[in-house]
Amino acid sequence: MLRVEDVSLSFGGATVLNRVSFDVAPHEIFAIIGPNGAGKTSMLNCISAFYRPQQGRILFEGHDLVKTSTHQIARLGIARTFQNIALYTGLTTLENLMAARHIHIKESALASALYWGPAQREEIQHRRVVEEIMDFLEIAHIRKAVVGALPYGLRKRVELGRALALEPKLLLLDEPMAGMNIEEKEDMARFILDVHERRGVTIILIEHDMGLVMDISHRVLVLDFGSKIAEGSPDEVRNNPAVIRAYLGQT
């Protein structure tokens, strides 16, 4: 489904990714782990066409993402969340999710301004989709709350909801459970597994909590200083000496 081929990225001489390659199969939960600054977020940024690698290709269902403009990524079926939550703080939960329906809503600017028959019906139809997602993530009670004022855990959940509202085929999650307490983490893990199961979404996940990663992911990629040092099932990776040295050994 996604093929990353020999990707290298650097910023003014500092190499952030060094010839990284991997494949993600459909319906997989694929984890990227590594110490701080290993280049995990940069990898996701490359996949979401936010950073442009100097070398290599990133193929998603035949499209080279390196050559795709950023705002086209969503139309290909890729959605993501951000390490430091990037919600539309001035909009409500409902509006944040509706904003992510942007690519699915066909109404013209003029229809939007007049809000006559078809435009209104379309808004309602998308509202249904969004309400279903809010129900599923248990955030329906805050649908009319402005997200800027919500507590951290809820904002993380709204951000997942916004990504889901795009109805993606591939979902990129950058530390969806960072900074949460155990209970919130378990909720989030359950949502991620549910999304995967019910919607058949392929997921690439960055996470620092090793226990969690080993529990929910099918395959794991380990980055260290921008290079891939291991890739395989959670068990293989756990017992890989290079990983123990570079990653587990440090913590």
Partner: peptide, 21 residues
């Protein structure tokens, strides 16, 4: 509606808005 939400999306987080289509 759509137009207004996209205005505010760009104001609040133009980078996220771009990634989201």
């Amino acid at each position: 509606t759509k137009l207004g939400r996209s205005f505010i999306a760009v104001r609040d987080n133009d980078l996220a808005a771009e990634v989201l289509g």
